[in-house]
């Protein structure tokens, strides 16, 4: 067995891989949020950036596959770890007081993760699949409809349905729970723990876990309410 395979099939290696994919997804989420936020300030700017992200070959054929790999890896490894962890205790406790020693968020990453996975399914159905269809199946790379960029209109149209907005908001609440534990946990799994820096990392994680999902909720509600 090569040393790489040996490392990443160990308990610590698996958690490290989980942490690396998590840190990558944290960065991705930040840029996704930044672009979405443009839609609140300027439809034109949002259209320009969306068109760039949707058609730039580097983004489409280098970064997008990495992102898809990162997402798939993170949830597949999440399941693998969950199964292994469940197998490590064959008989459950008749009485277990988990709240006495740990947070609900930290004990239920699999459930918050599953909600996020369901959300990604919905999000792909809403935006990614139609986008791939238009660009690569119909072959229309112009990003135009009736002589104008279509991205902003599509975004506003999607957030018209209150049920969809409700599902998005709920998913972002679960995302916040996942991030609250996940952000600082990724650093711990990578061994990045230090008296000087860890309190700051935890604070930053707490801020990120609230600010980013709250921002996404704001954007969804903004487009829903301004379109009425």
């Amino acid at each position: 067995m090569s040393w790489v395979k040996q490392t990443f099939s160990s308990s610590i290696g698996r958690k490290f891989a989980m942490a690396l994919s998590a840190l990558f997804l944290l960065l991705f989420l930040l840029q996704h949020f930044a672009i979405n936020l443009l839609s609140v300030f300027s439809a034109d700017l949002f259209n320009e950036v969306s068109h760039f992200m949707g058609t730039n070959p580097l983004v489409q054929f280098a970064l997008q596959p990495v992102l898809i790999f990162g997402v798939v890896f993170h949830f597949v490894m999440g399941f693998v770890l969950e199964i292994k962890n469940r197998n490590a205790r064959e008989v459950k406790y008749a009485m277990n007081n988990g709240a006495a020693n740990s947070t609900w968020f930290s004990r239920n990453m699999i459930w918050s993760g599953l909600v996020i996975l369901g959300f990604i399914g919905l999000h792909f159905y809403d935006f990614w699949i139609p986008e791939i269809n238009v660009k690569y199946i119909q072959g229309d790379m112009s990003g135009m409809i009736n002589g104008e960029y279509r991205y902003y209109e599509e975004l506003v149209h999607k957030f018209h349905d209150p049920i969809r907005v409700g599902l998005y908001v709920l998913s972002f609440v679960f995302l916040a729970m996942h991030l609250k534990h996940g952000f600082q946990s990724a650093f711990q799994s990578a061994g990045a723990r230090h008296e000087k820096y860890t309190p700051g990392i935890k604070k930053l994680g707490g801020l990120y876990a609230i600010a980013i999902p709250a921002g996404f909720i704001f954007i969804a509600l903004y487009h829903h309410l301004t379109a009425i």
Partner: peptide
């Protein structure tokens, strides 16, 4: 056959000797 660490911190709280998560990192 022990499981993997999820960094819940339950071990550190329940440890009779107060062993810190610093050690796991």
């Amino acid at each position: 056959g022990f499981g993997n660490c999820s960094n819940t911190g339950a071990c550190e709280v329940e440890c009779p000797k107060g062993i810190s998560l610093d050690n796991i990192a």
